[in-house]
Computed example of a mutant assay.
Amino acid sequence: VGIYATRNACSRVSDAGLSTASFVSNMSMGYSGNLGFPMPSDWAIDQIKTINVGSGSGLIEIDNDISSGRESGQKSYNPVPAKEDLDVAFDQTWADELTKDIQTYFDSIGIPEEGPPDSWPWPGKTKYTTSYCVKFMLSWDTLFTSLARMLKMRKALIQTSAIWELRHFNITNIEDLSVPKVNDNFSDACVYDYHNDGVLPDWVTEWGNKLTTLDDCSTGVGQIFGRRAIKARNHAIDLGLLDEAKRDATKDADVWAVWEKLHFNQSYNISTVPFMHILHAMEKGMARPGLTTSEADTEKLLQYYQGDTAEAAQQAKLRMGMYRIIEDKYQSVFRKYL
């Protein structure tokens, strides 16, 4: 354990047995701890002077340090491959194969390439095809990968939740529905109307006078509520995973600020998905999702993303099929060989 400080601070910390070597900021005479105090007995590096190196636009200022021999410094660096089994980028040469695998699986569970799942209890249609959703997922692979590596969780968990929701985005004509809110565009329009006092873009005004009072709804790629996103991101801030100001889910202004980002900013929405999983794990008394999360717990996390209901539990079993394709056939192989 080392310390970088003045002579006095280094000596006191060393004498207390809390350090084994000192890097002394000796040239900083503005520190009172350097005035009249001896060098610490365990000094390893002594910062003695600032010098200039180079000239013209290449001129830089560096510190000139001396060594007691206790620490010889680093002369070479040979990186050792990480042993944490972190996810890596998707090999895009396998994009067509992945698309076919997911299309085949979705067909097998009643979700055709186009249109809604056969199991839906209402007539309607979805906005995006299966192949479009896979292409979208791969176009954001850099973000999915960085989130998985930063948070040390499986990329397939983040991808499955986001892309499953995107594939189920409903755009059924509200005239054909007894419950208009199943149309995701309509719900978004109602929230936009609520927070903007009638100043509306074209995609909202097309609904005419059919809009209802709705201050929040699931929106964007991962279909996330504004209030739940606030809770999830605040929890991530508390864990030191996010560096941003907290929001208040009881304030309309904060709900709108977050909902607007979730709706219009795809990167923000995707980046919120793993924090939703971390929040759900905390709320349900589960371990935080990680690199060794079991299949049983992964299925639970996929369930809680949709809700704690029998229907969500059944949907989670279907989502696990997509998860296994991405994780078992592709990402686990890429981690081993790429």
Rank of each mutant, 00 (worst) to 15 (best):
I237G: 03
G226D: 05
D197R: 08
L214W: 07
C217S: 13
T205Y: 04
V191N: 12
T213H: 04
S146T: 15
E206A: 12
L177G: 02
K181E: 11
A229I: 11
S161Y: 08
R167K: 04
N173I: 08
D202W: 07
Q223I: 03
F186M: 05
D215G: 03
T142E: 09
T142R: 08
L157V: 04
A156C: 13
D176S: 14
F186C: 08
Y194V: 08
W207D: 06
P201M: 01
Y192L: 02
L166W: 12
R233W: 05
D197A: 13
D238Q: 15
A162W: 02
S161F: 03
G226N: 03
G220K: 14
I174V: 15
N170T: 00
R233N: 05
N185R: 11
T145I: 07
L241P: 15
R233V: 06
G198R: 14
S178R: 12
S178V: 14
L214E: 13
L211P: 13
W203A: 03
H235L: 08
K231F: 00
S161N: 15
D202A: 07
A156E: 15
L151N: 03
K231S: 04
T219V: 14
Y192D: 00
T213W: 02
A148G: 12
T213S: 14
T142L: 07
T213F: 02
L147C: 10
F225A: 05
A156F: 09
A148T: 04
D176T: 09
Y192A: 04
D202C: 00
R228D: 15
R227N: 06
G198W: 10
N170E: 04
K155T: 08
L147I: 14
M153S: 10
G222M: 10
A156Y: 08
R228H: 09
N209Y: 03
Q223D: 07
I230R: 09
Y192S: 01
D202S: 09
D216T: 02
H195A: 00
D188W: 10
C190T: 03
S161H: 07
N196A: 05
T160R: 02
T160L: 01
N170C: 01
L214R: 14
N234R: 07
G208C: 00
K155E: 05
A162R: 01
N183P: 07
K231G: 01
D193N: 06
E165K: 08
H195K: 00
A232C: 13
D238C: 09
W164I: 04
A189F: 11
V182E: 14
T205F: 09
N234G: 04
D176F: 04
G198L: 14
K181H: 07
V199A: 05
K152S: 13
L151T: 05
Y192C: 02
D202K: 10
N185Q: 14
L143Q: 15
A156N: 12
F144N: 01
D238V: 11
T212G: 11
Q159L: 03
G226H: 09
Y194M: 14
I237A: 01
G222Q: 09
